[in-house]
Computed example of a mutant assay.
Amino acid sequence: MATAAARERFARKNEAAELKRAFDAIDGKKDGKIDQDELGRLFIKLGHTTRLSDIRDMIWEVDEDCDGSLSWIEFQAMYHRCRNDLTGYEPRRLFNVVQFVMNDKESSGRVSLEDAMQIMYLRYGRGGLDAQLEEIFGTSDLNSGKTLSLTEFLHSLQQSQVKQLQSRVTAKTYKPPPLQTRSKRLSP
């Protein structure tokens, strides 16, 4: 029987292969870069409507060398930054699209709950998997046959991320614990 560490290594290797497959699927020109035209064509293919300015912003948010496109290195860096982000403040719009493409293994334009399980397991662990599936798909039942289009998937992820950010304690929402009065005075 495989150990937990061996299963984790296998899952990470599969995640890396799926990430490369997603990059290649978006890189329509096969020039090793993803630009706004290629991302726009992906959205059209998947039936997702978005503004050109939003597509430009998705690229701009993670384009480290400011050349208007994403190289494989920038793409990987964006993915790993977002996957490991505990604050929730890392730009996620392109990351969410990439998650969809990674989960849509048959390029059907829909992601099933079963397809999403492996990658979500890596991100949220065994304990958080069911809750995350419930949050995005509305169920964690593998027999439900539930699938989501890109638009539905992005909407669910955005709602989930907004809810997580709103539940965080900030300087405005922090309430200090009540002061406890001492019943006995300490003598010097």
Score class of each variant (00 low, 15 high):
residue 136 I to M: 09
residue 164 Q to S: 12
residue 86 L to V: 10
residue 25 A to N: 06
residue 32 G to Q: 08
residue 136 I to L: 14
residue 17 A to T: 12
residue 165 L to G: 04
residue 91 P to R: 10
residue 28 G to L: 13
residue 10 F to S: 09
residue 159 Q to A: 14
residue 112 S to K: 00
residue 35 D to R: 03
residue 45 K to G: 05
residue 17 A to E: 14
residue 104 D to C: 03
residue 116 A to S: 15
residue 96 N to D: 15
residue 94 L to Q: 05
residue 7 R to S: 06
residue 76 Q to Y: 09
residue 60 W to G: 02
residue 139 T to D: 04
residue 48 H to Q: 13
residue 52 L to C: 00
residue 63 D to W: 00
residue 8 E to F: 15
residue 136 I to Y: 03
residue 143 N to P: 00
residue 173 T to G: 01
residue 110 R to L: 10
residue 75 F to L: 07
residue 159 Q to V: 10
residue 47 G to K: 06
residue 35 D to I: 11
residue 20 K to L: 15
residue 41 R to D: 13
residue 166 Q to C: 10
residue 32 G to E: 03
residue 72 W to D: 00
residue 153 F to W: 15
residue 10 F to I: 11
residue 129 L to F: 08
residue 124 Y to K: 08
residue 56 R to L: 10
residue 156 S to G: 08
residue 100 F to I: 05
residue 98 V to N: 07
residue 147 T to H: 00
residue 83 R to D: 05
residue 170 T to E: 03
residue 29 K to C: 08
residue 66 C to Y: 10
residue 94 L to F: 11
residue 63 D to M: 09
residue 27 D to Q: 11
residue 139 T to G: 05
residue 160 S to E: 02
residue 85 D to A: 10
residue 102 M to N: 04
residue 153 F to A: 01
residue 122 L to E: 08
residue 145 G to V: 08
residue 5 A to Q: 14
residue 31 D to I: 07
residue 12 R to F: 13
residue 10 F to L: 15
residue 78 M to G: 03
residue 65 D to I: 03
residue 70 L to K: 05
residue 135 E to H: 02
residue 86 L to A: 06
residue 137 F to Y: 13
residue 112 S to W: 03
residue 129 L to A: 03
residue 69 S to R: 06
residue 103 N to L: 05
residue 47 G to A: 06
residue 143 N to Y: 00
residue 168 R to C: 14
residue 161 Q to V: 04
residue 166 Q to K: 14
residue 73 I to K: 15
residue 99 Q to F: 04
residue 152 E to H: 07
residue 74 E to T: 01
residue 114 E to S: 08
residue 31 D to N: 15
residue 88 G to P: 05
residue 114 E to C: 10
residue 79 Y to M: 05
residue 181 T to S: 07
residue 23 F to W: 14
residue 25 A to R: 15
residue 117 M to Y: 04
residue 68 G to I: 03
residue 101 V to K: 00
residue 27 D to N: 14
residue 22 A to S: 14
residue 88 G to I: 00
residue 43 F to R: 04
residue 44 I to V: 13
residue 55 I to M: 06
residue 149 S to T: 15
residue 5 A to R: 15
residue 47 G to S: 07
residue 103 N to I: 01
residue 176 P to K: 13
residue 126 R to A: 09
residue 30 K to R: 15
residue 92 R to F: 03
residue 78 M to P: 04
residue 174 Y to F: 15
residue 104 D to Y: 01
residue 169 V to K: 01
residue 24 D to Q: 12
residue 55 I to W: 01
residue 18 E to M: 09
residue 121 Y to I: 02
residue 48 H to A: 11
residue 30 K to M: 04
residue 179 L to G: 05
residue 173 T to V: 08
residue 124 Y to N: 02
residue 59 I to V: 14
residue 161 Q to L: 09
residue 185 R to T: 12
residue 146 K to S: 12
residue 184 K to Q: 10
residue 51 R to H: 13
residue 76 Q to A: 02
residue 103 N to R: 04
